[in-house]
């Protein structure tokens, strides 16, 4: 037995409420982050990721309160991302009870933030989220670049080079989302997952495109991912965490049961 591959459900939180709906969990209020987190904990999730998509900065403080509540009741690792711009934001989230914070756009605009934050709180707390798109034409050697603002803004930065740089800057883990696959349900972009995973020593979480359980297996076995993140297949009850783990185990992947 060795280290288990992790399954991480990801929840979008807007002004303190889970959005997009979470239907499978037997809970009264599917918008309450604490209830949802508790449900996923009971279901056997290995970690939970909250992505704060609150647009208005006025409502940002509600996220700290949400994290405090969840951390008071749910005793598995909690990652929080969205809107982190300074080391003080990182510290506040950790103090509220987050175990890791995920930095995305701010890392692109200010890579030193990753360095500064990992120096202060330790690499194991710093996840760098990378939104990547394939930019090569069919038939060409595949090439990927990172995008910000939900995949709308190109940066011209090569995904693999960026991943290596973020690892050097002290990221403890990379959350790699394929913007081409996000929401498509046709599976992870195995090419970029494998390329990033091979290029760095730190763990890589694959994200974007999961529609069926075989995709989770492919992300690990073909993409070399250390963890797989999914939202809709779990939220809408298509599959439970338990089913996903049982399937992965059948395919020879070590999971925590």
């Amino acid at each position: 037995m060795g280290l288990a591959k992790r399954i991480i459900p990801c929840l979008d939180v807007d002004a303190g409420r889970v959005v997009k709906g979470v239907k499978f969990l037997d809970i009264r209020d599917a918008g309450d982050p604490v209830s949802v987190a508790r449900g996923y904990n009971t279901a056997g999730a290995d970690e939970i990721t909250f992505l704060d998509i609150t647009a208005s900065s006025d409502n940002r403080d509600t996220m700290y309160h949400v994290v405090e509540q969840v951390a008071s009741e749910v005793f598995i690792p909690l990652t929080v991302g969205g809107g982190i711009r300074a080391v003080s934001d990182v510290r506040r989230l950790l103090n509220a009870g987050a175990d890791k914070v995920s930095i995305n756009t701010a890392a692109v605009h200010n890579p030193e933030l990753v360095q500064e934050a990992s120096d202060k709180v330790g690499s194991q707390c710093i996840v760098v989220a990378i939104d990547s798109k394939c930019v090569s034409s069919p038939g060409e050697e595949p090439r990927w670049e990172i995008f910000t603002h939900g995949g709308r803004k190109p940066t011209g930065i090569d995904t693999i080079e960026w991943a290596v740089k973020m690892a050097e800057f002290g990221a403890g883990e990379l959350l790699l989302t394929s913007m081409d696959r996000d929401g498509t349900k046709i599976g992870f972009d195995i090419g970029v997952t494998k390329a990033v995973s091979d290029a760095v020593e730190i763990p890589v979480i694959a994200s974007g495109g999961v529609g069926e359980l075989q995709h989770l297996v492919d992300g690990v076995n073909q993409g070399g991912a250390d963890a797989v993140l999914a939202a809709s297949i779990f939220h809408f009850g298509e599959y439970s965490i338990g089913e996903a783990k049982a399937f992965m185990q059948q395919q020879g992947i070590e999971v925590r049961l």
Binding site: G2, L3, A4, R6, P203, R256
Partner: peptide
């Protein structure tokens, strides 16, 4: 160690992150 290898020669990621027995 870097690289860190398991008994079958597979590279292991560092940090050691996640659930181990």
């Amino acid at each position: 160690a870097s690289p860190l290898l398991d008994t079958s020669g597979q590279r292991l990621k560092v940090p050691h992150m996640g659930w181990s027995p």
